[in-house]
Every structure is written in structure tokens, then in C-alpha cells.
Design a protein around this nucleic acid. Structure first.
Lengths: 244, 244
DNA sequence: TGATACATATCATCCTACAACCTAACTCGA
DNA sequence: TCGAGTTAGGTTGTAGGATGATATGTATCA
């Protein structure tokens, strides 16, 4: 609990701010791939911080594969395809359009993963999923506990695919969405009435128990479209309308 | 070109090594979420480096949401769900089993994205895709240029979905796979004969031109399964065998 | 002209010092 | 004894300088 509060009220350290500034400059195209960054000293003067702070910021960008530092020469912007990490700008998610896109990605990932999970799950997986389902059973409204249980439900399904990368990616995307919605609720009380539809979850679970990939996929797809609708995002997936 | 050489022969800086060590300790569970890391001074003594180096390493982990540092108290391991970035351990990819999992994830992402692209592509997208296709047309073997063209082909399709997140995720996964295969070829000349199957690419392109989502999805799925086979990875996707 | 040596620029690492902040123990009065 | 306030020590955050390693360009000299 204390952890969460701290995570939200996190003070922006100087290195973080410098890194964010440079990162934005790169993303926006002001610094093109191949371009050389100012020297560490120039940056430290420009931002009015010590060279240490600049170095920590650059260490961050370098770890992400956004820039490459060469001793004796300088630091250079790398091409986007050379990124070593995926990071989602939470600011951008305040735009509904971006949220819509992220839901679409989530739908792709989770729908097929549900099918895989249906084919591969064992009893242990089913027990974990059922436990998460029970935890959100009582509550129809989005309380903290229910949200956590909802996330856990999805993560456990991802885990049942037996593919750790799938688990990582789905956890990540879901967490970004959760964080963004949580933030929206804090700033705009209107969002307080968002519900969790337990029925949709039950249908997914039943398909998993039955070991029916097609049914699991369809149920998951319907659920995510529903979830998106409930937070005010309508998904333009042609799959849900037409195919199968 | 020079850039690529430098990127491959990158010297492991001290902060990078320290970060990798701590990261592994966290991933492996030796440091559980909530646990406190040793102080910066202890770490600097343990690794025999300056406190500055330790700080740069920690800045990295912090940016990824793996740890949280609190002034006056210490640094603490965060729960995996709180990660702010996705990063794939390239060491782990040397294990065929992990490579198989990554291909599976790629298949999920790209197959459905191909369907979306078929529904949404405009003429500009088709032109870009065709250009990439032509670039690899002549070569049947995996030369540097062909590999780049292959990657570009996939990235352009991802772009045609109109969803920047899908584009980012697919680019990232493809790049990890490319890097790993490139590395394998360097160390083991046996891999030198891997081919690019142009026919599979053409079939995908034709489905996109026709605007046929189902055909595009099927062609992409077949292509990725084929590509995996050609690098010695067999995909256990039940989708390819049974459904549709 | 060509090769070597030197000067310069830049990142990599180290060191020390101080500020900001937290914790816990300690003091002292009621 | 108890509780509030104070103090001391530890830890991260930031600053600034010094030195080593590496790449580049320049000047010198055979």
C-alpha cells in the first residue's frame, strides 16, 4: 500500500527529467538517427545540473538502445529499430485514440493467448485462474481489490500458455492500461462507475476448463471489447464483427 | 555500417555489467519484490567500482521499474507487474526453447496484424511493402541486404495497421530475433545457408493487395512457421494445424 | 610525400564533499 | 513511566574536479 502511494507520488529526479527531455527530442524527430548529442558538459550547462546527472540520464537512454556513446567521440542517436526495450509513454495514453490502439494490441495478444491456454493449461493453472475469478466475484464495481483480481485473472491465463514472453508482454500491456485508467479516475470522478463484468470472465474460464481454444478466443475477444467499451473506448476490430 | 560494427562489438561498460548482475539477481528471485538492495557503498565495494558506476546501474534499473530508490532509506525491488519497460535477455535467446517461444509470440502478433493491415492499408502502404519485397527479390540466400529488406517488409506491414503500438511491438520482436540469428551465424558457420522464401512473402503481399484479411493472416502464419523452421525452430502452434 | 608524434576533444571512471531525507535512539520534562 | 522533541547516524541525491582511455586532427620531420 505504502509502495503504491510512493510509486504515484514519485519525485521526479533530475536524471529522470533530463532523460525524458532528450527522449522526447529523439521521439519527436528533432534529433534524427545518426545525429550527435551535445557533449556531457554542454548538456550539464544547458540544464544547469552536474555532469553526474547527465551521465545517469544518458545511461538510461543507452540501456534502452536509443543512443550509443563512443568514448572519445560523443553520443549518437540510434535508429528506432535498434531499441533494446519497449516503453510506453503514459502521457500519450491520456489521448483516447492511443488508448484505443493499445486496447487493440491487447485484444490481439490476449485472444490468441487464450486459445493457446485452453490447449495447454493443466489443473494448477485452472486453480490459479479460478482463485482470481473468485476474488472478483462479489464486487460488481471497480474497487481496488477487484481490479487487482481482474489483472491477476488475465496474467494467470497468460501464464497458462507456458510462454514466458507472452506472459511478460500481456502483463505489461495490461498494467499500462490499468495505470492509465487509475489515473483517469483520480482526476475525473466521472469514471468512478466503471464495472467489471463477471459474466464475461466466467465464460472465458469455462472455455478454458473445457479445453476449447476457439471458444476461449471468442470469449476473450468479446470480453476485451466489452472492457474497452466500459471505459469509453470503442474498438474498431474487424475480427469481432465479421470473421468466425 | 560502421554503426553496426560498433553496436556488435560494444564494450561492456561497468555500469552495464553491474546492472546486468542485479537484474539477474532480481529475475532469478534471489531478490524478491519488497527486498532492500545493499547500499550504494556496499555495492561499490562488492563490485570494486566507484559509487558513481553503481548509481548509473541503479538509474537504469529504476527507469525500467525494477527497483525504486527512496532518499534516506534505500533501494527496493518492485513487483514484476510494475515494470515500466519490456526487455528481452539476449543471452536467454541462445536457448532454442526460448527462441521457439519468441517465434510463437511473433506469430500471434504478426498474423492478426496482417489481417488488420489487409483491411486498412492504403496505396502508400502497398507501395512501401512492394518496395521492400523487390529489394529481397533477387537474393535467395540470407545476405545482409536481404535480411534488412525482410525486416522492412514486416515492419511496413505492421505500419499499415495504422497502430503505432503494434508497429513498435512487432519491430522490437523481429529485431531481437534478427540479432540472435545474426549472432548464431557469426559463431556457428553452419547457419550460413538459411534462406529467405520469397514465395511466402509474395503470397502475403497479394493478400494485402486483395484486401483479404483471412488470406493475409493465413499467409503470414504460414510464413512465420516456415521462417522458424528454416532457422531450426519448429513451432507447436495448434492454430496452424487445426483451426480455420 | 608520408609516417610518426603531439595536442585536443570526449567519454569512462574515480574521488570527495555536501544537501536532503529517513530512522531510531536518546534526552528530558511532566 | 510515558511521551514529545531533539539529536546522531545512515542513505540516497547532487555537485564538482581529477585522471585514464580512446578517437581525431594537426604539426613535425625524414
Amino acid at each position: 500500500m505504502k509502495q503504491r502511494l510512493a510509486a504515484i507520488g514519485t519525485v521526479e529526479t533530475l536524471p529522470h527529467r533530463v532523460a525524458a527531455f532528450l527522449s522526447r527530442e529523439i521521439e519527436s524527430g528533432e534529433l534524427n538517427p545518426g545525429a550527435r548529442l551535445p557533449t556531457e558538459q554542454e548538456l550539464s550547462e544547458k540544464f544547469g545540473v552536474s555532469r553526474n546527472v547527465v551521465r545517469e540520464a544518458i545511461a538510461q537512454l543507452r540501456a534502452d538502445g536509443m543512443i550509443e556513446a563512443r568514448q572519445g567521440i560523443g553520443a549518437f542517436v540510434l535508429a528506432p529499430e535498434q531499441r533494446a526495450a519497449i516503453r510506453i509513454d503514459r502521457e500519450a495514453l491520456k489521448d483516447t485514440h492511443n488508448m484505443e490502439r493499445l486496447f487493440e494490441l491487447r485484444c490481439i495478444l490476449e485472444a490468441e493467448s487464450a486459445a493457446l491456454a485452453a490447449a495447454r493449461r493443466d489443473q494448477g493453472h485452472l486453480d490459479s485462474i479460478k482463485a482470481a475469478l473468485d476474488r472478483m466475484g462479489g464486487e460488481e464495481r471497480w474497487e481496488e481489490g477487484s481490479i487487482d483480481a481482474d489483472l491477476l485473472f488475465h496474467r494467470e491465463i497468460a501464464r497458462a500458455t507456458g510462454n514466458s514472453y507472452i506472459h511478460t508482454f500481456i502483463s505489461f500491456v495490461c498494467e499500462q492500461i490499468r495505470h492509465s485508467i487509475h489515473y483517469a479516475r483520480m482526476t475525473n470522478p466521472l469514471h468512478d462507475l466503471v464495472e467489471i463484468n463477471v459474466g464475461e470472465h466466467v465464460r472465458i474460464y469455462e472455455a478454458l476448463v473445457a479445453g476449447d481454444p476457439a471458444a476461449a478466443e471468442a470469449a476473450m475477444r468479446a470480453h476485451i471489447v466489452g472492457a474497452a467499451n466500459r471505459v469509453g473506448v470503442r474498438l474498431p476490430l474487424q475480427k469481432t464483427a465479421g470473421a468466425k
